[in-house]
């Protein structure tokens, strides 16, 4: 079998790539939840306070407070349910498009005191530019 070394090489490459994907996942995966789901998860399993999670929701109108450019507090609420909300604390520079009622994706840890300590805040830009014209006209 002349080609055996070649095939061993191919299988080797495939295995290395699989290994990288596998271990990469272990290290980098985070739960991506809505506020409602996050509440349900922590109620069910206390350790959800300790791991990193990613949550998408909307910034509550009027909830934003800043202390300088590097410390921000605001509340995030579920897109569908008004009763699921929590405070967020973020110590870095906010994205330009951050404002009241923007949709945000925050990544960080939901502490036991009920405050979400965010390490990143991303805004989903563009969305407000497709607001319903009917509302505008109304």
């Amino acid at each position: 079998m002349k080609n055996s070394r070649f095939y061993i090489g191919l299988v080797g490459v495939a295995m290395v790539v699989t290994f990288l994907i596998w271990t990469g996942f272990d290290k980098a995966m985070v739960y991506y939840l809505t506020p409602v789901e996050l509440m349900a998860k922590v109620a069910e399993d206390d350790t959800f306070h300790d791991i990193g999670v990613k949550v998408s929701g909307r910034v509550v109108k009027g909830s934003y407070q800043a202390e300088g450019a590097f410390e921000h507090h605001f509340s995030v609420v579920d897109l569908a349910r008004e009763d699921a909300s929590f405070r967020v604390e973020y110590r870095d520079i906010l994205p330009d498009t951050f404002s009241d009622e923007t949709e945000v994706v925050i990544e960080g840890r939901f502490r036991r005191d009920g405050v979400f300590e965010a390490t990143t805040v991303l805004t989903k830009c563009g969305s407000r530019y497709e607001a319903m014209p009917e509302e505008m006209a109304g």
Binding site: G24, F25, K27, A28, M29, V30, Y31, Y32, K54, E107
Partner: peptide, 8 residues
């Protein structure tokens, strides 16, 4: 939903 970040 489980997401993977840039780290992955």
């Amino acid at each position: 939903k489980v997401a993977v970040g840039p780290a992955f």
